[in-house]
Computed example of a mutant assay.
Amino acid sequence: MAEPKRYSRIFRVRQYECDMYGHVNNANYLRYMQEAAIEASAAVGYDVARYNQMGKLWLPRLTEIEYNQALKYGDEFEIVTWVEDIRRVRSLRVYEFRRAGEVAARASTDWVFMDAATRKPESVPPDLMAAYFDDGLPEPAERRAPFPTPPPPAPRLVIWPHTVNWRDVDMAGHVNNAQYLSLMEDATLEVGRAFGWSLERSLSQNLAWVVRRATLEYRTQAHYADALEITTYLANVRRSSASRFFFVKQQGSGELVVQAQLQYVLIDLGSGRPVAIPEELRRDYADNVSPEATK
């Protein structure tokens, strides 16, 4: 029976990886995942230099992250990662963030094998498939769930423009997949300001939205100096949680680059525990909620 080769790496949280709440920033979990994936591939004989020689690379199609416990400055944690499924042009890599014997976060990325020049999918070579497993290849897994169908747009949308900066772009020459989470954070803060809930107002009431789950689907790539726009609205509003959908598009053409669903929980900053969404907050955001949202 095929067994995936597992790779583990110890990290220590650095100060600049944390946000003002004292937690590791959401996007940095994805950056840890990228680093672990690169090292795991190198450990089975496929490092960056070998991929460059082959003229191939892996690009993400769908990433999911479930945040169970907040990692904080100075924490030492382990990432364990393995390839769970591989077929034709795609590979599903799974990640666990382990701290003190508990799983702080779980994640997966569905990667697509690409020709580096054309950026078109190519079949994964048999020897590359075999490198990730002991005792043969696994049986094909069930069909992977697609990105959730977005609900209808809210009556009032917030569209936040962004021109791709040099710092957004990685070695592959496009906006790094983790950077989209950072852009969505910026857009969320602009939404709060637009609806009367600036960061300062939230902090004055000891309230904060934290991400419990993130799902991102990458449709195409954005590059340096591209003019993007991020449209966002709320859905599935419940007692202390809500989902926010994001659509990153090219300005002008409207081509969809990335779409995402982030599931938020409102917490009390003092206790770190979920709290009921105040009625005034619900009222102020009402026009930015999809009409199909559950109240």
Rank of each mutant, 00 (worst) to 15 (best):
R98F: 04
E78C: 15
R90V: 11
K72L: 07
A117N: 13
R119Y: 10
V124G: 13
L71H: 09
M129H: 10
V103E: 08
Y95R: 00
I86L: 09
A43C: 03
E122S: 09
A130F: 08
E78Q: 15
L62C: 03
L128A: 07
R99A: 07
M54A: 13
D85P: 00
R119W: 08
P126H: 09
V103A: 11
I86M: 12
V103H: 05
R90W: 06
Y73G: 01
R87E: 07
Y51N: 09
K72C: 12
D75W: 12
L92N: 10
A105G: 09
V112N: 00
Y73D: 01
V80S: 12
R119Q: 10
V44A: 13
E78F: 12
R88L: 07
G45Q: 10
E96M: 11
G45D: 03
A49V: 02
P60F: 07
G101H: 12
F113S: 05
P60Q: 03
R87S: 12
G101Y: 06
L128P: 01
D127P: 04
M129L: 11
E78G: 14
E122H: 05
D75V: 05
D85K: 13
Y51L: 13
G45R: 10
W58S: 03
F113V: 00
K56G: 02
E122C: 11
W82D: 02
Y132Q: 09
D47Q: 06
A117R: 15
W111Q: 08
L128Y: 06
L71C: 04
G55Y: 08
F133C: 06
E84D: 14
I65E: 01
E96I: 11
A116Q: 11
F113D: 00
G74K: 05
V80W: 01
T109Q: 00
D47K: 03
W58I: 06
F77P: 00
